[in-house]
Design a protein around this nucleic acid. Structure first.
Lengths: 160, 160
DNA sequence: TTTCTTTTTGCAATGAGTTGCAAATACTTG
DNA sequence: CAAGTATTTGCAACTCATTGCAAAAAGAAA
């Protein structure tokens, strides 16, 4: 696990100040589950520091994202955040029906990425990428398929 | 060019009413340039029909998107819309720097699409897809590259 | 054409997220 | 450890987009 001190160092190195608000938001995200909603982060942070302001949470998460500490995931049109694990970077597939977020290895986007760069000189933002759709579990199944469904697929929604 | 009457028929066929507001928004989008911002649509529509309400424009564009008349493009976190040309469907690459939107043939996403379906049973929403990034013109160039740049790439930003 | 039902509109209120600004505070330097 | 300054916070106002609801209007039926 990435040490908390190391995370703080990232902020310090880039010249950002270590305010109580930032320390708390960082801890909340580091200890929270994957892709937490902003409101969740806010409530947790507020219970540790009652003066916490929602605008500060937004600004702090934006800063953390900018320096790469956290990853932003748009789930059902709301922003969610999770700690960035440098050794387990992944994209997300977000289900439009159940709002579940499933991990997707960067490997699946490598080819797409090179194509855009080579053919159009367009450099896509693929640090993190979220694709919406419908997951196996929520997918309407044809009659013959019923009961055969989900077991053949691996959708990693588990903790990192 | 797709006839205006045909577009109206699409609405009628699905049981939607033809209100003056809808006719005007449709004409504005049909005659406007590619990917218009909602505010642009609103202003144009309002000048043709002064009682036009912004909420109506939003609702109307959402409806049009739902029935496939228009395509939604998120440009720099604002929603834009353009008339759907059934014979020229395309995705968009949106430049984070200049906010330009460039067309991308669906062909480039076919493989990615099948991979998600086959490996994860996840059905991605790929009717229309927008990828952010930096276009050739805004891309920082290494010294040797200067002056060699953009001519080798085709970025289609033109009218459809 | 008139009446009826259902959809749609306009308006005002709401929600997520951002921003301007004065007051507060983290870090720097002496 | 005191003073200075540049960043950050809290608050309120604001933006884009959505929604609840009563009044208006479209289309169907008589």
């Amino acid at each position: 696990m990435t040490s908390y001190e190391q995370l703080l160092q990232v902020l310090r190195d880039e010249g950002h100040r270590l305010t109580p608000q930032r320390l708390i938001v960082l801890r909340v995200v580091a200890e929270g589950r994957q892709h937490m909603g902003v409101d969740e982060v806010f409530r947790e942070a507020q219970s540790a520091y009652p003066f916490m302001d929602l605008a500060t949470v937004y600004r702090t998460l934006r800063l953390f994202k900018q320096v790469g500490l956290v990853t932003e995931v748009a789930i059902g049109d709301r922003l969610h955040y999770e700690l960035t694990h440098p050794d387990d970077r992944h994209h997300h597939m977000v289900c439009r029906v159940c709002h579940g977020a499933f991990n997707l290895s960067p490997h699946y986007l490598e080819e797409f990425n090179s194509t855009l760069v080579n053919e159009f000189g367009f450099i896509p933002d693929l640090d993190h990428f979220t694709i919406a759709g419908v997951c196996v579990n929520c997918r309407p199944q044809s009659p013959e398929e019923v009961g055969v469904g989900s077991e053949e697929f691996t959708l990693d929604e588990g903790a990192t």
